[in-house]
């Protein structure tokens, strides 16, 4: 079992305060994590913000960073244990295969890890902003692990919490496939899934600006799907 397979929780910080105060008081001695035996000390542990909104108790998760590279996240404290990022992205459930709509908080955490943590190169700027907690997303599962995702806004969804403006068309907001899984048509699969989810819609939006990688996938898609050529728009 992996964190995403455990019973759903309301918050991601179960036991974290206890873990933190044990570290602060020195109650635990010489705790180490993973094959590189990174010491779990108060100095190596920090709160990693996962969502831009929601109650403070479930906006962040306790994380372990590398003592050599403070930007590198090694593990997360979930449901009373430390888990490596690769294990957090894994599943033991055979039903998690292909594209699955995100429902649980743990699945939302996976979207966050894929978009902001595991694919980030040292010194690289963040490609995506933090997602709101209620964002519509789908995860792509392959070989027992989450390997990609896309997020979208349905037509009529609120643009923000205050102006009352709504999306005039469904918009694909962000899309990502893990580097190790690229070049196998998975990006195309994500894009086609978005288009078929909203096949009744006349126009479909892709959020601006488009990355080079996404343009390459779009070129491939539109090269063979004439029906989509008049329907896909870059939107601001």
């Amino acid at each position: 079992m992996f964190p995403v397979d455990l019973p759903d929780v309301e918050e991601l910080t179960s036991g974290s305060e206890r873990c933190l105060s044990a570290l602060e008081s020195g109650a635990v001695e010489d705790q180490r994590f993973g094959c590189s035996q990174v010491p779990v000390t108060r100095g190596n542990v920090f709160w990693l913000q996962v969502f831009e909104d929601g109650p403070p108790s479930s906006r962040s998760v306790l994380a372990l960073r590398s003592p050599d590279d403070p930007d590198q996240v090694l593990a997360l404290f979930l449901q009373d244990s430390w888990w490596s990022l690769e294990d957090v992205l894994r599943t033991a459930s055979p039903s998690r295969t292909g594209l699955v709509p995100v429902a649980s908080l743990a699945e939302r955490l996976l979207v966050f890890l894929l978009s902001r943590v595991v694919e980030r190169l040292p010194g690289e700027q963040q490609l995506f902003l933090l997602h709101p907690r209620a964002e519509s997303c789908k995860l792509l599962w392959e070989g027992g692990a989450a390997v990609g995702f896309y997020t979208f806004k349905a037509r009529g969804a609120r643009v923000d919490g205050w102006s009352g403006r709504c999306y005039a068309l469904p918009v694909l907001d962000s899309l990502q496939v893990r580097r190790s899984c690229r070049g196998r048509g998975l990006g195309l699969r994500l894009l086609e899934d978005f288009c078929s989810t909203f096949q009744e819609e006349e126009l479909l939006g892709i959020s601006s600006p488009l990355s080079e990688g996404l343009v390459a996938v779009l070129r491939k898609l539109l090269g063979r799907r004439r029906d989509l050529r008049d329907r896909l728009y870059e939107v601001e």
């Binding site: 939006g205 892709i206 488009l210 343009v215 779009l218 070129r219 539109l222 989509l228 050529r229 008049d230 896909l232 728009y233 870059e234 939107v235 601001e236």
Partner: peptide, 14 residues
């Protein structure tokens, strides 16, 4: 604001 993606690709804008 919106612009057609296929047209943009054809015109080399992307």
């Amino acid at each position: 604001a919106r612009r057609n993606i296929w047209l943009g690709i054809q015109l080399g804008r992307f």
